[in-house]
Design a protein around this nucleic acid. Structure first.
Lengths: 300, 300
DNA sequence: CAACGCCATGCCCAATCTCCATCGCACGTT
DNA sequence: AACGTGCGATGGAGATTGGGCATGGCGTTG
């Protein structure tokens, strides 16, 4: 990949002698010497001073050496990262996440990841926020996404993004005028609830849980697509993290407004990884990619 | 210098097609394609996805591309710096400096520089601190060293080092016990003065000038070597910047102690370069080297 | 179905790289 | 003063690599 001349030059600079460098690299001194003479001709300047005892770098040589060493070291790093990729080409990754991320963020991230690792299989399951840590800790899943909170020592949040729960509404809804909405603001409006195969989660914020349990949903569905359409058709509003509707918000089809509760607005979702158990190769790659995608969310 | 494969790979990634890249680089598509296949074999992984319309980088390819682009860009920079060196191989540099730097720092720095630029000639002249800026500004000299102070807009201090004037004494001198010495402390001791071909400089600190003018030197010499020896032989003490005696201090032959005057201890010497007029190639190289050597002083 | 774009491959020649042997030079030893 | 030993530089033969040309296989497009 990199020209042999680079290695030759580096070794010669290191050992201060063409012959010693040649011995170290198992090539003949003449071959090595020619490469260095070629380099000097190409750059139009001497790279070494020829002293009776051997070769010493000139100023230009020092400059070039820095570049060459840097290049070769960096290449080693790149190669080992590529080897990691190769090891991760096949395998299985299990992901346990709170449902808001299953709506939009995770399916899309996985789809993009799949393009690079077509032979990897996935399990992508929703779970209650409080259950995710246990599922990752005991190895049922490789990675988890849940609201950030205290973790057992066997787990660690690899990366976090702010993820307040707010109100998702049609783009012409009156609540859109407010920058933040209170529980009282939303009470009058019809409400759409998601009902998955899971028991309803013990909620992250006690006040919010109490508030929502008092509401009577106009529509309950376990189909996210149905809920999205229902919101667009003005059947009601729903409560989700922004992350579930990034694309629709972007296109102006729905609007999202935060609550006026500091506790809710401080909510963060994090990528949970095992701290002790070494992750499988594909899990490591996927985790790295997810952190990247989360960074993109952050800046958006 | 760098393998052609790097350029081939970069161009192919850029254009998304072997044929287009080959056309842009004036080589045949088959030759270029082979190099890429070789790369993939060497790394043991595909770098491109072959789509009907052309080539798209895989994850491993993205990784490698970063490395390759970085390497080639950096090489361009290195090459141009080497070209600068070559342009500076010959020529002349004029340096005007306060005398303390002529004692030790500048001759040694120039000697090291000369090893890399043997064909450059130098003028190295002492001047009064107050005259240096004018001499550099009007082009009489390319570079200057003087005490830092206000400069005309046509000049600029490229780099500065602290350079308080202090007392140079034999290593077993009683004043050595003090961390800082006062004017009164030194008054009882015999004093050695340097007298160059220059009129005695208008001194940098008014209080110090007054103090020194009251002293009667036991020995006046224009030979620095003579002064150094005289100090070692305990004939007296002298007033210099540390920079004039770095080597002797290091070897323990003489000691140096600062005065207790904040004004004197705040003194700095700086490398003065023209801000408008572009410096000659050798002057630019020498200036860069001098800044490097000054940095070494700083940390010493 | 034909035409066109793409990358992959076989073949041949030219350029490059490597090796071995040798040279000239500067030093230290005898 | 002569010699031996280390150094880099160089010449020539042979192996390796890189390049160009022609062609093949494949998918898309008209």
């Amino acid at each position: 990949m990199h020209a042999a001349a680079l290695t030759y030059f580096r070794e010669t600079a290191k050992r201060g002698s063409v012959r010693r460098a040649a011995a170290a690299l198992n090539v003949s001194a003449s071959a090595l010497n020619r490469q260095i003479l070629n380099l000097e001709e190409e750059l139009g300047t001497a790279l070494f001073d020829r002293l009776p005892g051997g070769m010493r770098l000139t100023a230009a040589g020092e400059l070039l050496l820095q570049h060459v060493v840097g290049t070769l070291v960096e290449f080693d790093r790149v190669r080992s990262r590529i080897d990691d990729l190769r090891a991760a080409r096949t395998g299985h990754v299990g992901l346990s996440a709170v449902d808001s991320l299953l709506v939009d963020f995770l399916p899309r991230a996985l789809d993009r990841f799949r393009a690079d690792f077509p032979a990897v299989t996935y399990a992508l399951d929703a779970a209650n926020p409080a259950d995710v840590p246990r599922l990752v800790a005991d190895g049922t899943y490789d990675l988890g996404f849940t609201f950030v909170g205290p973790t057992p020592p066997s787990l660690r949040f690899e990366h976090e993004v702010p993820a307040p729960i707010g109100v998702v509404m049609p783009s012409d809804h009156p609540l859109r005028q407010k920058r933040e909405v209170s529980f009282d603001d939303v009470a009058p409006y019809p409400f759409l609830a998601q009902a998955g195969p899971l028991p309803r989660s013990a909620d992250v914020d006690a006040g919010f849980a109490r508030f929502r349990s008092g509401l009577r949903p106009r529509l309950v569905s376990n189909s996210i697509q149905a809920l999205k359409t229902a919101i667009r058709l003005n059947m009601g509003i729903a409560f989700f993290t922004r992350l579930g509707f990034l694309e629709e918000i972007e296109r102006g089809e729905v609007a999202w407004r935060p609550f006026d509760s500091p506790a809710i607005n401080a909510l963060r979702i994090g990528l949970l990884v095992p701290a002790n158990r070494p992750p499988t190769a594909p899990a490591r790659q996927l985790a790295a990619r997810l952190v990247e995608e989360m960074g993109r969310l952050d800046s958006a």
